[in-house]
């Protein structure tokens, strides 16, 4: 991962010292999350070694994959100081549509995935156009889209269900198969993560997303094509959500209308836990993915630790709050340190 992210940094040819300091700050957020994750996994593993046997690791990775994908998509929107609450509905609609499409047929994997992406793109286009060209608050529009897409999905499905027996074997294999012992889904998530990270840091348009999020006014004055960039972010998030829907079908085999119902808040919390500020401008896709991994691992660990399922919600909530508070405190410390150091280097003035 680091090799990938470092290359474009060098290519941009910015002053090395300042850049590496910024890197340290950014990385600190992710390191604290990764630390929490490792600690959690270690403790659970000590309590129950089966948590990390081959089946356990496979389950852990598979559980997290879809949330990781959605979190990566969401992080690209959130850095622009926007939000996409419709992802749960889009995933649900796409999963059901793909299920309906492949049911009792021999449709291939590729065309199904493309269908999912197309549905997601269409939804993302509507949300994105409303937010960027309609200049309306993202929270309201995407909340509206959440309802609209969910209503259409339920209306269309009207109690139908696609069963695993109806889904072609090739598609189910995508959800459960693996290469060299690593299941496909986590691999897909890692590839998307690498591409997104590369884009956000290596391309001008990627970095412009951060500029828009941290100071829209300045970004506009600097001539950033804001509307196009924000629309692009929504298209990406929508496409990822649609893609995740197709994978949902592959993974679970059974789909009904309300798949991924209520997922939007889980995705947003994963992104926030991952250090992507809801106020825009900071955070990485890599952090969001870690956040998603942490959120699902908490869930799995509690079950393995035989914590009563009644406690699960409370503990998850408390850990989320602790994570964002700790993140905030670390961030404040690092900013202070950064300021001190840049003052010493004479950048302070």
């Amino acid at each position: 991962m680091t090799t990938l992210t470092d290359k474009p940094t060098a290519a941009t040819g910015e002053p090395g010292s300042a850049r590496s300091l910024v890197d340290t700050v950014f990385r600190a957020r992710e390191i604290s999350i990764a630390g929490a994750l490792v600690l959690l996994i270690l403790c659970t593993w000590i309590a129950n070694p089966r948590f990390l046997d081959s089946q356990g690791v496979k389950d852990l990775l598979l559980n997290a994959s879809i949330l990781v994908l959605l979190a990566i998509g969401q992080s690209v929107v959130v850095v622009t100081r926007n939000i996409d609450l419709s992802v749960g509905s889009v995933t649900g609609l796409s999963a059901f549509a793909c299920g309906k499409f492949v049911a009792d047929t021999e449709h291939g994997v590729l065309i199904t995935l493309l269908l999912g992406v197309a549905i997601g793109l269409a939804c993302g286009l509507v949300s994105g156009a409303l937010v960027s060209f309609g200049r309306v608050p993202a929270l309201v529009v995407t909340l509206g889209m959440l309802y609209i897409i969910q209503g259409l999905d339920y209306w269309w499905a009207s109690g139908d269900q696609i069963n695993a027996a109806q889904v072609p074997e090739a598609i189910l294999h995508l959800g459960s198969g693996s290469v060299l012992g690593v299941p496909y889904l986590p691999l897909i998530a890692v590839v998307l993560l690498a591409l997104t990270t590369y884009f956000l840091r290596g391309y001008r348009s990627g970095r412009e997303l951060y500029a828009i999020g941290s100071n829209p006014e300045a970004a506009r004055l600097a001539g950033t094509p804001m509307r196009r960039r924000v629309l692009g972010a929504y298209l990406f998030s929508g496409a990822v959500a649609g893609f995740a829907g197709a994978l949902w079908l592959a993974r679970f085999g059974t789909v009904v209308a309300d798949n991924a119902h209520g997922y939007e808040l889980t995705v947003v919390s994963a992104v926030v836990v991952g250090g992507v500020a809801i106020t825009g401008g900071t955070g990485t896709a890599w952090g969001a993915a870690l956040g998603a991994l942490l959120v699902t691992t908490i869930g799995s660990a509690l079950v393995v630790l035989k914590v009563s399922s009644f406690w699960q919600g409370a503990i998850t909530g408390a850990l989320l709050l602790a994570a964002i508070s700790a993140d905030r405190i670390v961030n404040l410390r690092m900013t202070a340190a950064l300021r001190k150091r840049s003052a010493r280097h004479g950048h302070g003035a």
């Binding site: 939000i83 808040l265 947003v268 919390s269 926030v272 500020a277 809801i278 106020t279 009644f310 406690w311 699960q312 919600g313 409370a314 503990i315 998850t316 909530g317 408390a318 989320l320 709050l321 964002i324 508070s325 905030r328």
Partner: peptide, 22 residues
């Protein structure tokens, strides 16, 4: 603490619902 309310209350959304079931 200076956290955004959207993030905080997503956390307490899970927390309070969890306490209810506890």
């Amino acid at each position: 603490v200076g956290l955004p309310s959207l993030a905080v209350t997503i956390g307490t959304l899970a927390l309070y619902r969890g306490l209810a079931s506890v």
